[in-house]
Amino acid sequence: MIRINCPYCGERDHSEFSYGGDATINYPSLDASEKEWTEAIFFRKNIKGFQFETWHHSNGCRMWLVVERSTVTHEIKSVKPSHPDLQKIVENNK
């Protein structure tokens, strides 16, 4: 079991969460080329090692999180709210 330290709820089993995917995708502008959109939607780095990824606390606070986790050892380095403004609020409330 992976334990994810949700910034809103505290440390919980990963079975409370749903895995989203790569958190580093930058979607292009609406008028960008098909090639750019194809790259953003379908192509992945698929990192072997530490990666930033999204998790949804679907059986908890239902907030989206960005987790830095190793895809080899499953060790977690950091957990943050996915929205940058919420990140600031959480940081300020520490």
Binding site: I2, Y19, G21, K48, T71, V72, T73
Partner: peptide, 10 residues
């Protein structure tokens, strides 16, 4: 249900 290269299950 989550991306992994680990050859062991959860």
């Amino acid at each position: 249900w989550y991306k992994s290269y680990a050859q062991r299950g959860n």
